[in-house]
Design a protein around this nucleic acid. Sequence first.
DNA 1: CTTTAATTAGTAATAATTACTAATTACTTG
DNA 2: CAAGTAATTAGTAATTATTACTAATTAAAG
Lengths: 146, 146
Amino acid sequence: MQKNFWTEETISTLLRKHGLRVTAPRIAICKQLLAQHCHYSAQQLHEELAPLHPTMSPNTVYLTLNQLAAIGLIRSFNIDGNTIFDSNTATHDHAHCRNCNTLVDLPSNSEMPPVNMGEWALEWGTRLWSGLCPDCKQSANTTSAS
Amino acid sequence: MQKNFWTEETISTLLRKHGLRVTAPRIAICKQLLAQHCHYSAQQLHEELAPLHPTMSPNTVYLTLNQLAAIGLIRSFNIDGNTIFDSNTATHDHAHCRNCNTLVDLPSNSEMPPVNMGEWALEWGTRLWSGLCPDCKQSANTTSAS
DNA sequence: CTTTAATTAGTAATAATTACTAATTACTTG
DNA sequence: CAAGTAATTAGTAATTATTACTAATTAAAG
C-alpha cells in the first residue's frame, strides 16, 4: 500500500463499494485507522478522535469498527478481553507484553494448518505471543537481582 | 501424559510444590481440567462442577483458574472476549468456528518468531484460526444455494 | 427540494470478570 | 493432638467493555 493511498476520496469509494454511506464519523475513523498500520481498541480510537470530533459517541466507534471488520477492511482479535482492531490485513503474528501491554507486529512465519483440517473453511488467523518486551524483561532482571 | 496420571495425590503434590494449599475446590477443578485435554471458560467449568459441588462459588473458579495459569499448569487465551483455559500446555494452535463457537486443537506447525524479536522474552503463543467448521460450512452452502 | 432508509448520539442494559469482606479451613507449631 | 494464623472460600457488590434500544439526524436517490 503506497503512502497516502487512503485519501478521503479512496475511502469514500471503498465505503460506497460495500454499500456503506459516507459520513463524517466513518471518514474520520477510516483515516485514523488506515493512514498507518496500527492497533486500536474502540476506546483508544474514540479517545484519539474526541478532540477533533467531540460529538462522536463511543457507540458509533464500536459500530463502525465492527462494520469495517465485517467487510474485511480491518481485522479484529482479542487480548485479555479487549477487542483490538488491526488495519494490517496481511497474515501476521503479534507479540504482546503481559506487563506493559505493548503490542507489536511480527513478520509472519505462518502457514495454513495441515490438510487434515481441510474440511474447515478457515478465513483468518493470528498468533499472539505472550511474554515480556525488552524493557520489562530488563526491569524484571534488575529487580530480581537486587 | 499417561492415562490417569492426574490422581488426587499427584495433584496435591503439584499444588503444594507451588505453595498452594490443597482444598476441595482446587482438587475438583484440577481433576476436571487435567483429566483430559480440553477447553473451558470459567463459567462452563463452574456449571459442570455445580452438581457435585453446589456450594462452590463462581468467584472461586475464576480465582483458581487464574492461579493455575499463573503457575503454568494451564494456559489461557481469549476468544471474542471470553477467557478460555486450556489444559494442553504444549504449543499448539486452535480453530474456532465463528458460527457455532466450536473450538478444536490443531497440530502445531508453530515455530518461535524470527531472531529479530530476540530481545523479547516470549513465553507462550497460540494461533487462533477463525472460520467455519465443516457443519456450518455445509449449512452456509446449502442456504445460499436455495 | 422531498422523501426515505441508513446512520448517529445518547442512554440504558448486558455480561464477564474482579474487588471486597467476613467466615471458614488447611497447615504449622508447640 | 490442640490451638494459632494465614490462606482460602462464598457471597455480594462493583467494574468495565460492549451491545441494545430509540428518537433525531442526515446521506443519497428521485
